[in-house]
Nucleic acid binder design. Sequence first.
DNA 1: TCACTGATCGTCT
DNA 2: GACGATCAGTGAG
Length: 200
Amino acid sequence: MPSRLKRIARALLPTDTIELSRFLIGKLLVSRLGGARTVARIVEVEAYLTGDPASHAFRGLTKRNKTMFGSRGHAYVYRIYGTSWCLNVTSAEPGIGEAALIRALEPVAGLDAIRERRPGVPDRDLLRGPGRLCTGLGIDGSIDGLDLCARDAQLALFDDGAKLPIGISTRIGLTRALERKLRYYARGSKWLSGRVALSP
DNA sequence: TCACTGATCGTCT
DNA sequence: GACGATCAGTGAG
């Protein structure tokens, strides 16, 4: 059980996207979407930067990615492959399209509600993968642009003081910029997505 | 645990 | 008209 949860103010979020990605490892995501309260710890994040061919913002501002160009600490949610939702935390200064993709979470509280959203799924797979964690926490495109630092937010970032060892690797599922090591994960966690060999 | 495949649809070219 | 920052299912090792 987490000790004392402190809401994370926007001023505490690093403006630099790589720093933000590392900062987010070990932090808590609290969802009240759909009525149930669920809490999960961030254990895997990927950074998407300016000038990065793999980023949605690479070709400039569009209707889909406009949230990425807003101020940091907001939820950028998009649909991928027509089937799954993905959650990002926006980063950098307004006008700059950068974000941190949340790839995996460790369930902390509200397990029943999460299992209810993903019936028949083993606990280890409940929040392992960007699409799966959105389903598990009730996240969909309707919350795109939500302020994760707002007092009354249905989805918000919290800190319980936990410090986890951080590993670095290449990103997952891309066809461009395959070589860049912009994936950050909680070393030793059993809740990570991707192949085991990618998270030594 | 890994490799491969089909599903599926909004967004951008 | 093509293509994904993915997932679930299947089959082999």
